[in-house]
Amino acid sequence: MRKKTGLRIWRRFCRDREGVALVEFAMTLPVMLVAYIGMVEVVQLVMINRKVTQLTSALSDLTARVQTVSTTDIDNIFNAAQTILMPYDNSKASMVIASVVIDSAGVARVCWSNQRNGTAPARGATVTVPDSVRVANTSVIMARSSYRYTPAIGYVLTGSFTLGDSPIYARPRNGVAGGTANIEQVTRTGTNACQPFN
């Protein structure tokens, strides 16, 4: 009698499907959570990276539109461009704007530069520019920005990532001819046009 009862209970247990979904859910929940958290962190990284590219483009574009910029103008350009980063923390962004003059030998050197939370190249410093930009006796506005991204959760992506930091170039649209070679450039108030670079 006991054997039959035990066998009956065992068969009933094997046929019982109540709670199977709960057990399966409990087994897959950790995997789903890791996948969700990883997706959120990667999407945030991609969105901020795109905003940094737009920020860099705005810096070069806004500066290339004018003939002369003052320190106040540069501050206004930085302020306007960094609004692109909203809703992200703009204090984690570094921005650099530089006017680069390419001489008759194709050597690119910095005429003037400004930065916010970054390091700007000094006047006269040689910089490497792409061949498509290196046109003798011309100038370009070079902008560079980067963003220090640290994932909020830091479970799938750990540590900090530097996003951006690739220069974008823009030709002056309304520059003035200056320097000994009369190269069209955006000049900065209180700084001599280039060349010379001293």
Rank of each mutant, 00 (worst) to 15 (best):
T63Y: 03
M27R: 05
V42I: 15
M32I: 03
Q44Y: 04
R17T: 08
R15K: 13
V20Q: 14
A64L: 03
R65S: 08
P30G: 07
M32F: 06
Q54H: 15
I37F: 13
P30M: 07
Q67C: 02
R15Q: 13
F13G: 08
L33Q: 01
L33C: 02
A21K: 09
V46S: 10
S57G: 09
V40T: 15
T56D: 05
V31M: 05
N49R: 10
V43A: 15
R12W: 00
R15A: 11
R17H: 12
D61W: 02
T56Y: 01
V23C: 10
R12L: 06
V34P: 00
V66W: 00
M39R: 06
K51L: 13
V46T: 09
D16F: 09
L45T: 09
M39V: 10
L62T: 01
L59Q: 05
R11P: 02
V46M: 14
G38P: 07
A35T: 06
E41W: 11
E24A: 11
S60H: 04
L22G: 15
M32C: 04
V43H: 15
V23R: 08
L29W: 00
G19H: 13
G38T: 06
S57Y: 05
Q67T: 09
R17C: 10
C14W: 03
V31H: 04
T53H: 10
V42T: 14
S57H: 08
A26G: 14
S60E: 01
A35C: 07
